[in-house]
């Protein structure tokens, strides 16, 4: 067991967990933030994507003990000027970039990370930035449009 402190969405969390606890379970079960989801066992689907110190990572492939005292942002931690939604979140709403919504938090976080590094991505940039995230509902085009909308509406700031 280990006492693991992680700042999640600006709030310092501290939980006594087994060494093997995956970051996704620390976030979902210990910190009770259920936005990030689990969709596979093999780091393929990206539903668990969160920002770790600002970079997108798959929280199912990170141990909580590995990120002691580091900073995590989940989809619950995003906010912005669109009725409280960030430009990326609003972009997904405007462009119908989600259907069932299960892969969506991971898509939103991966897109947020992309726009921070590359505020004006091409379609190709967007598709490759999201290649670690699987969506089974949308066929991806509307997700691409969502990220483009976000880029045009302040998402890269």
């Amino acid at each position: 067991m280990a006492i693991v402190r992680i700042k999640i969405n600006g709030v310092m969390q501290q939980h006594d967990v087994e060494d093997r606890t995956l970051l996704i379970h620390y976030i979902r079960e210990n910190s009770r933030l259920t936005g990030a989801h689990i969709g596979c066992d093999t780091s393929n689907c990206g539903a668990c994507t969160v920002l770790l110190n600002g970079s997108a990572v798959k929280s199912c492939t990170v141990l909580a003990v590995q990120v002691q005292d580091e900073e995590v942002t989940t989809v619950e931690g995003l906010s912005g000027d669109f009725n409280g939604l960030s430009p990326v979140q609003e972009g997904f709403r405007q462009q119908h970039g989600l259907q069932c919504g299960y892969c969506t938090p991971g898509m939103v976080m991966a897109s947020t990370a992309l726009l921070r590094e590359n505020p004006k991505p091409t379609e190709d940039d967007i598709r490759h930035a999201l290649e670690g995230n699987i969506c089974r509902c949308t066929g991806y085009e509307m997700i691409v449009n969502s990220v483009r909308w976000a880029a045009e509406n302040g998402g890269g700031k």
């Binding site: 259920t34 939604l85 969506t104």
Partner: peptide, 21 residues
Amino acid sequence: VLRKEDPALLTGHGKFVDDFS
């Protein structure tokens, strides 16, 4: 028309089975 469903799902407030504990 934009979807009623989206704001909750986009902010992590969707409630899927595994989210109930």
